[in-house]
Nucleic acid binder design. Structure first.
Length: 618
RNA sequence: GCCGACGUAGCUUAGUUGGUAGAGCAGCCGAUUCGUAAUCGGCAGGUCAUCAGUUCGACUCUGAUCGUCGGCUCCA
């Protein structure tokens, strides 16, 4: 699978629209200084330094100006200049950012910053090994931009666009550089496509886990507890515990054993693991206890290593797979926090597999298959792996062990190829202790998330002296696989909320069935139904069916509406008829009326759905 | 952390150029007893995020702090 997508017509048009916007901005604020403006997914952006802070009102002005220019059928002229001439021209136009890029092109032949993606198109000029000699420019009206192109021939070819939002962005992606104003625009071939995109955004808002988390009473935050520290309400806790139950069952199948470790640890452990020098900034400040520093644990790995070290191990013990839902704390930057997607305290579906070198590939593969089982169960149809390799230019960020890196990468590569699951490669994304793969999944509305990570660690072996006694009676190093297929409860639940739009399948639903007596005289029968459901032997994480009885003095219609809003899978309406027959009238949340059925039949149905974790068809 | 926007009862929100807040839903009380998405009436609930400042007077203006959101940077 190739990372380098071809320039599509749509991309070209989007890029041209970025130029059109820059032209509009330049005519509104002649002193504007331009950074880069590439095409991106759904449209484009342009980074600019302006004398004013843009507001939504300004976006309207810019948009209007853009329409004006577009209607003038402005041509996109290509012209070429020698690099020194180009620098002179941009200096004359007071474009310091462009000058900087040109100087980079002149000296290094590229503007690329390590890992920079996308931006390159905006400024790129095909180059050889050395510096660049000629630079291509595109002129649109009075606006001239250095640009590799290609572009449309004139502005009338631009489809339908809409400026979306304003954001701050560091020049060249470096937080030490000045911050520019970035305007994002959406661009499509026609109005239908744009409307579809806008509808998708609306749908994403409706499914936003923060909104649904509120409406469905799943979790909350408290200023008095702290930023990024979620508190799980009873309904949300059900989701956590059902996922945990699932993980325990699946991991049991795959030969894991469960462990438990404390939340705090002396600094010593993290010096040994090598984390402290790298991540001190991102850890909560230590507790000082009797002259010793204790940290809240930001990961479980070193703790699990201690468990491994607690006993000597023979080759017969391996692979040893230690699993734990481990609570960890990371002092994330305040601006990075976002609902449950990014928190400072979270519980990982963590495990470490200790194995021999010759077992590593199969273990890696087994972990991938475990992922696939989860995705299949959740109806996650689109997913792929991202193979994160080290950035060879920045080896100081990693621990420099070329041969071991290579060995590890070969194992992962083999496992991935054998798995047959799709993957892409990303350089410079590796962890400091080894290459990793991240699983990227798409929710039903197409939003993509990095949900879990899978790493091969050869560093821990040495740092912690993790050994086993081989058949030959000698000590050998073990390989460690870090894996967390369900990521953290926090992020995975956030994903599932969006994926299911809050309408969880029966096995996950916080309330699985609600009994709705039609009139007060049916409450007594309602209570009997409740008791029988309560006593039914159904294997949930909570020890039985999760049911409610709505005996409010309300009309049945209102009770149904309330149950619908809470997205409860089953509404069991009971009136005279049902009381007489020992039945329940079953309504699904999609509006389907299954009619009256004996209570025992309903219990069987629920039991089947919960055991198989698949909802039955209506 | 940085740039920008925002912060009114549990939730959704109204509040004109500064004169100390209205509503719907939820809650509570009462009436109603109803066959598949909202029965009626009443009550209660707000130091307008917090703290300073300007002013005779601040939800409305200014500053700081806390928090949320959109991005950037980061993500073991």
């Amino acid at each position: 699978m190739s990372m380098q997508a071809e320039h599509s017509d749509l991309e070209r048009m989007r890029h041209s629209t970025a130029h059109l916007m820059a032209a509009a901005v330049q005519s509104l604020w002649p002193e504007a200084k331009f950074g880069v403006g590439p095409a991106v997914k759904n449209g484009f952006y342009y980074d600019m330094e302006l004398p004013v802070s843009l507001t939504t009102k300004d976006l309207e002005r810019i948009e209007q100006k853009m329409r004006e220019l577009k209607n003038k059928k402005l041509p996109y002229h290509r012209l070429e200049l020698g690099v020194d001439e180009a620098i002179g021209e941009m200096e004359k136009r007071h474009q310091p950012f462009k000058v900087e890029l040109l100087k980079l092109l002149k000296e290094k032949g590229s503007t690329a910053v390590a890992q920079e993606t996308g931006d390159d198109d905006a400024v790129g000029v095909s180059q050889g090994a050395g510096g660049v000699e000629t630079i291509s420019f595109y002129q649109t009206g009075d606006f001239v931009d250095l640009c590799r192109g290609p572009h449309i021939s004139d502005s009338s070819q631009i489809g339908v666009f809409k400026l979306m939002n304003i954001a701050g962005a560091y020049w060249r992606g470096n937080e030490k550089n000045p911050q520019l104003q970035r305007v994002y625009g959406a661009v499509f071939n026609n109005k239908e496509d744009l409307d579809k995109y806008l509808w998708q955004l609306e749908e994403a808002k409706r499914r936003d886990h923060r909104k649904l988390g509120q409406e469905l009473d799943l979790f909350t935050f408290s200023d008095d507890v702290g930023q990024g520290l979620p508190l799980w309400l009873p309904n949300g806790t059900v989701l956590r515990e059902e996922l945990e139950k699932l993980a325990k069952e699946e991991e049991r199948r795959d030969g894991y054993v469960r462990v438990a470790t404390p939340h705090i640890t002396k600094d010593k452990l993290y010096y040994r693991s090598g984390h402290l020098p790298y991540y001190r900034e991102d850890m909560y400040a230590p507790l000082d206890i009797e002259g010793e520093e204790y940290f809240l644990k930001p990961m479980n790995c070193p703790h699990h290593h201690q468990l491994y070290l607690a006993r000597p191990h023979s080759y017969r013990d391996l692979p040893l797979r230690l699993a734990e839902y481990g609570q960890v704390y990371r002092y994330e930057q305040s601006g990075a926090l976002s609902g449950l997607m990014r928190t400072r305290g979270f519980s990982q579906n963590d495990a470490h597999i200790y194995c021999r070198f010759d077992q590593a590939k199969d273990e890696f593969l087994r972990v991938m298959r475990l992922h696939a089982r989860y995705y299949d169960l959740m109806g996650i149809q689109e997913y792929y792996m991202r193979f994160s390799k080290p950035d060879l230019n920045k080896l100081d960020k990693y621990v420099n062990e070329p041969q071991k890196w290579l060995d590890a990468m070969v194992i992962i590569q083999q496992a991935m190829d054998e798995s047959g699951y799709p993957y892409i490669e990303a350089e410079g994304e590796a962890a400091f202790y080894g290459p990793k793969i991240d699983f990227m999944i798409k929710s039903v509305i197409g939003n993509e998330y990095a949900i879990s990570t899978n790493q091969l660690d050869f560093l821990a072996t040495e740092r912690f002296n993790l050994k086993y006694i081989g058949e030959d009676g000698l000590e050998h190093p073990v390989y460690v696989i870090h894996r967390a297929p369900l990521g953290s409860h926090e992020r995975f639940v956030a994903f599932l909320i969006e994926h299911y739009a809050g309408a969880f399948p029966t096995w996950l639903a916080p309330v699985q069935a609600i009994i709705i007596p039609i009139a007060e005289r049916h409450n007594e029968y309602g209570r009997q139904v409740y008791q029988q459901l309560f006593d039914a032997d159904v294997p949930t994480s909570t020890g039985g069916l999760r049911i409610a009885l709505d005996d409010d003095s309300e009309r049945m219609q209102k009770k149904i509406r309330n149950a619908q809003l809470k997205k409860i899978p089953y509404m069991l309406v009971v009136g005279d008829k049902e009381a007489e027959e020992g039945a329940v009238a079953v309504r699904l949340r999609n509006g389907t009326d299954l009619g009256s059925m004996p209570l025992a039949n309903f219990i069987e149905r629920a039991k089947t759905e919960i055991k198989t974790r698949h909802d039955l068809e209506a």
